[in-house]
């Protein structure tokens, strides 16, 4: 066989392998989607069977239409969970972007021992696992009346500050001082200099910080469960709620809620995947 033909053949082989792998990667989600349309008693017994649309002798129809969705929405209060998740994520990410970029600017531009001690405290917090502070933090949140969807935003600011300040500081260190100094000499106050000059330059890092924090807060389960879980459910809490509590669990409702939990993420991913992949990779390399 001559060389170009051989190369073409290996190329084709790799392509086929990749197609098979891609199907394998999508399969679990497709199977959950398929099962979400089956009656709840036909899921655990035959998870890989297609729903049947008519009754055969001895075999009932397993297609359940949207029953699981309606049932699940009602049982978990999914719609309000979606609202809480959306509000908490957007508010926290917005606040983190604003406060942490301002903090990072102060930390990189003012130089003294106290400032560098504060910076190292932020860096230190990145390596502390959540279990270390989960009990005391939820007690303090309770004590300070932060155990509501607005208060938890402040907790997320404090807990997300480590990574966000670190990423912003890393970027700001490499930025020449001349631009800001020129702005200040021209009569800008520090507030004007920050918002008109520095903040626009921070955009690429801000996107990374926003994406990393969005993924974390949207999917976070234990923190909101401990802080606001007994009064307010976010999406992960609503999904986990179906697991226990009242007797045997409803597999149909679980499948439907999984689909509804996956859907917003897929939409978000497909609309801004370029930023997401880049942001996540950049965050990993710097973190």
């Amino acid at each position: 066989m001559n060389h170009p033909a051989k190369r073409k053949l290996t190329g084709l082989l790799i392509f086929v392998i990749l197609i098979l792998l891609a199907i394998l990667f999508l399969l679990p989600i497709l199977i959950v989607l398929m099962n979400s349309f089956k009656g709840q008693f036909f899921i655990s017994s035959a998870p890989f069977a297609f729903p049947t649309f008519s009754e055969a002798p001895g075999q009932p129809m397993t297609f359940a239409g949207l029953a699981n969705y309606l049932n699940g929405l009602q049982k978990t209060g999914f719609l309000s969970a979606f609202g809480y998740s959306l509000f908490i994520t957007l508010a926290s990410v917005g606040l983190i972007l604003l406060c942490c970029s301002m903090a990072a600017w102060y930390l990189t531009r003012v130089r003294n021992a106290a400032v560098s001690a504060i910076y190292y405290l932020f860096v230190f917090s990145m390596i502390v696992p959540f279990q270390m502070v989960m009990f005391t933090m939820s007690k303090i949140a309770n004590l300070l009346r932060l155990d509501n969807p607005v208060g938890i935003v402040l907790i997320y600011l404090g807990f997300g500050a480590g990574l966000s300040v670190f990423l912003f500081c890393g970027f700001l260190r490499g930025l020449p001082l001349e631009i800001e100094e020129a702005a200040m000499i021209d009569g800008c106050s520090p507030i004007q200099a920050f918002f008109l000059v520095v903040f626009p330059i921070l955009r690429p890092t801000a996107i990374t910080v926003a994406i990393l924090n969005t993924m974390w807060i949207w999917n976070d389960y234990l923190l909101p469960y401990l802080v606001i879980g007994n009064k307010y459910k976010t999406i992960p809490i609503a999904v986990q709620y179906l697991q226990g509590g009242y007797g045997s669990r409803d597999m149909g409702a679980l499948m439907a809620m999984l689909v509804l939990a996956i859907l917003p993420i897929v939409v978000f991913y497909l609309t801004s995947q370029k930023y997401i992949i880049k942001g996540v990779a950049a965050g990993a390399v710097k973190g």
Binding site: A103, W105, S125, V128, V133, M137, L157, G158, F194
Partner: peptide, 21 residues
Amino acid sequence: LFLLPTLLAFTVAFLIPFILG
């Protein structure tokens, strides 16, 4: 304005819980 808000939230959500823990 610049540092205090983040520092306060950080103290309440992380620093005090950590030391107390």
